[in-house]
Structure formats: C-alpha cells, structure tokens
C-alpha cells in the first residue's frame, strides 16, 4: 500500500447563495497519496455521510481534466499547486503529511456561490453566446480541404481552442477579469480563415459582453499561470488589438485584412 497523509482541511461551507458562508476545519488521517484531490473529498464525504452530516458540495464530471466542471481554490491557488493541472488531476502526492489545506470556491462578483464549493459560471456562456461561433448553418459547408490552413496557424488556433472553460483564469485574477477565457475563444476563431468574415464583430461583441460581468485586465499574468491548459496571455494582446481594430476599421471595406 502506498503511503498516506494526515491533513488539516479548512473547507468553505455555504448553504445557498443567499446566506453567509464560513470555514469548517476537518482533520483527516490515512489519505492515500495516490488519490486525486477530489477523491480525497469523496472520502471525506463518505465519512460525513456516515456521521450524518451533509456532504460537501463540489462539482466535477469527467475527472480527466477536459470538461472544465471542477475547480477549487486550493491554498489561494486556482486548481492548486501543480502547474497545468485541473483540480481533478491534482493528486495528493503533491502534498506533505501534516499539511494544512484551505479550500474555497471560485470567487468573482459575476460567479455566485451556489453551495459550498460550487460556483455559478454561466456568464462565461454569455460571452460565447455573444459571438463565440462561426455562423455556418448545417449543410452549408464547402469541402473541408477547400481552404488550406497553414500548419502553424492551425496549431496556434488549437492552443487557444484548448480552453476548457473552467473559469480558473477569472478565479486567479486579482481583478476578476475573464480576458484569458474570452481571448482564447476570440483568437481560436479569429485565427482561422473560416472565422474572418465575422472577425471584427466577434471581437467587439465578445469583449463588450465580457466587460459586463468581469473586471479589467492589468496584465498580471496570474491567469496563464492558473490555466490548466497553460493558454498564453499572448492571446489577450491579440484580442486587444482585434478589439481596437474593430473600432477603427471601415468594415465595409477591409474586413478580410
């Protein structure tokens, strides 16, 4: 049997968005090192249920770092200490025996706490709704190989498209800005030849919708550090440029440039 840990956990408990929350401290022994962070919480929940206490509410789904459902603030770091790793892929071997771990939900004014560690991230969908798509109806597509896309362009677009929408960038940002999320989607589509006809409108609408909910970027770079997909803040710069261009361009002329 692999070795185990004893931990002191301070976990945020809150019954609903309308009431105040507080920290509760739990002492745990014999936490397997091979367990993931969420499995550690599963174990804790089993114990709580056995004791007749309501289990801790936290969200997760795929548990392989791709669906973006999970996300906890662990010791002040979004998704915890391991770089490029979502909470579900964080394993307890990253911690030491006797560690104190503070667990909080994602926080931002636009993200209300639903219960305990679960947060409402629907404003991210509002940003996508504003223009995070290429308007092509089913059946209207030309042959897939009609437009070659340079290898490098496709790769860079992919780097942006890898975003899992977890909201760690907002959670980690001292300004609660969503620039990394928004710019990842804007740039994924703006880099692709297929995305050109809506490029300026997309940049304008998505950025302005983002600004209805989130703070303003001051280029700290915390988001890039917290991002489980390590998406670069270069995309933020490119989106800033696209946004300003969208305001300056005569879109009836040079939309393709």
């Amino acid at each position: 049997m692999a070795s185990t840990l004893s931990l002191t956990l301070r976990i945020w408990r809150q019954d609903s968005p309308q009431v105040k929350g507080h920290f509760v401290t739990y002492e745990m022994d014999d936490v397997p090192e091979d367990a993931s962070f969420l499995e550690m919480l599963d174990i804790l929940n089993e114990i709580l249920i056995a004791k007749g206490e309501e289990p801790i509410c936290f969200e997760s789904d795929c548990r392989e770092g791709i669906c973006g459902t999970c996300g906890l603030m662990i010791n002040g770091q979004a998704h915890g200490p391991q770089k490029g790793t979502a909470t579900c892929q964080l394993h307890m071997r990253q911690f030491k025996d006797g560690d104190h771990i503070v667990v909080e939900p994602w926080r931002a004014e636009a993200f209300s706490v639903i219960k305990d560690l679960a947060t409402d991230r629907t404003p991210l969908d509002a940003i996508i709704k504003a223009g995070g798509y290429i308007s092509v109806n089913t059946g209207a597509a030309p042959d897939a190989n009609l437009t070659p896309i340079p290898h490098q362009t496709a790769a860079t677009a992919f780097d942006a498209a890898a975003c899992i929408g977890c909201g760690a960038c907002v959670a980690a940002c001292p300004n609660s800005a969503a620039q990394l999320f928004c710019s990842a989607k804007v740039q994924h589509l703006n880099l692709m030849p297929q995305g050109q006809s809506e490029r300026w409108e997309r940049a304008e609408k998505m950025v302005e919708t983002m600004e209805e909910f989130f703070g303003s970027c001051t280029n700290h770079g915390e988001c890039e550090e917290a991002c489980p997909k390590e998406i670069s803040i270069d995309f933020i710069a490119w989106t800033n440029r696209d946004y300003i261009k969208s305001k300056l361009k005569n879109r009836s002329l040079f939309a393709q440039k």
Binding site: G76, R107, P174, N219, H220, E222
Partner: peptide, 27 residues
C-alpha cells in the same frame, strides 16, 4: 475607472489569495 470596475467585479478570498505570476510591480 478601471480600478473601480475591477473592484466591483472582484470578490475576495476569505482564505487569502496566492500570487504565482504577478510581480511586485504589477500588484
């Protein structure tokens, strides 16, 4: 005005926030 905007958007962490990328200057 951007500071005001960010202040309004931010809900601070009760348990504190760690910094891993933000420099002393940026903060």
């Amino acid at each position: 005005s951007l500071t005001v905007m960010s202040r309004r958007a931010d809900a601070s962490y009760v348990g504190g926030r760690g910094y891993s990328a933000a420099s002393y200057a940026s903060r």
